[in-house]
């Protein structure tokens, strides 16, 4: 039990600290890297809660895709972060207001839970004993919800086809790599022995340089 507590405080402290670093880091690339660290710590907290599927999802989706996308955006688009940061103090009241609203909502949630302890019980659908939550999700996703699962797959297929249709261009005269041709090349086709006369060009047909 003590070990769990130690890990909880470790992950929680690191998550809070790296979350703060995301905001205050001067270098935007560092900020994104701290964001990734925050995700990892949040994933650790999920594992402590016994939600290992969510933890994996967080790593795969947020670290593997979203954060890498952020990194690409930060590094490829030349955004002047110093200029963006200039309005920090000016915009601070708005930020505090939004933060305050979120905080108030969280407090209300806890209050509601304490005031009406029966509510969460009706919402939660506990997983059967003896199955991990990945297994439980899979069992419901591939049976009861298989129609929606496949439908969502088709939607994603259309999105992919659409992106390719609208953006892929086959330009004339672009030299593409042909792996089969490269592999098939041997000494017989690739190398040509030329006897070079002294002072002449190594390319047989080219005019000799003066």
């Amino acid at each position: 039990m003590a070990l769990t507590a130690i890990f909880f405080y470790l992950f929680a402290t690191l998550a809070l600290a790296s979350g703060a670093m995301v905001i205050v880091a001067k270098n935007p690339v560092h900020a994104v890297l701290f964001l990734i660290l925050t995700f990892f710590n949040a994933a650790g907290l999920f594992i402590l809660l016994g939600a290992e599927f969510l933890a994996m999802l967080l790593i795969i989706v947020y670290v593997g895709a979203v954060a890498v996308l952020f990194l690409f955006v930060v590094m490829m688009l030349d955004v002047d972060f110093a200029e963006l940061r200039a309005g920090f103090i000016k915009n601070a009241p708005v930020g505090l207001l939004v933060g305050g609203v979120v905080l108030a909502e969280l407090v209300l949630l806890v209050v509601a839970r304490v005031a009406a302890p029966a509510t969460p019980a009706t919402i939660a659908a506990p997983i059967p004993q003896g199955t991990t939550n990945t297994e439980a999700l899979g069992q419901i996703l591939y049976t009861k919800y298989v129609y929606f699962f496949q439908g969502a797959g088709l939607v994603l297929l259309v999105a992919m086809v659409g992106a390719i249709v609208l953006t892929l261009r086959h330009k004339e005269g672009v030299k593409r790599q042909s792996i089969a041709d490269q592999v098939a090349r041997g000494p017989a086709t690739a190398v040509k022995m030329v006897k070079v006369a002294s002072g002449a060009s190594a390319i047989p047909d080219a005019p000799a340089k003066r």
Partner: peptide, 23 residues
């Protein structure tokens, strides 16, 4: 409602692309 939304979205996404096919 889930089937309604997925069907609608599958249809609509394909139609958006078709509208812009002369890119």
């Amino acid at each position: 409602l889930l089937a309604l939304y997925l069907g609608l979205e599958l249809q609509s996404l394909a139609l958006y692309v078709l509208a812009a096919v002369r890119r």
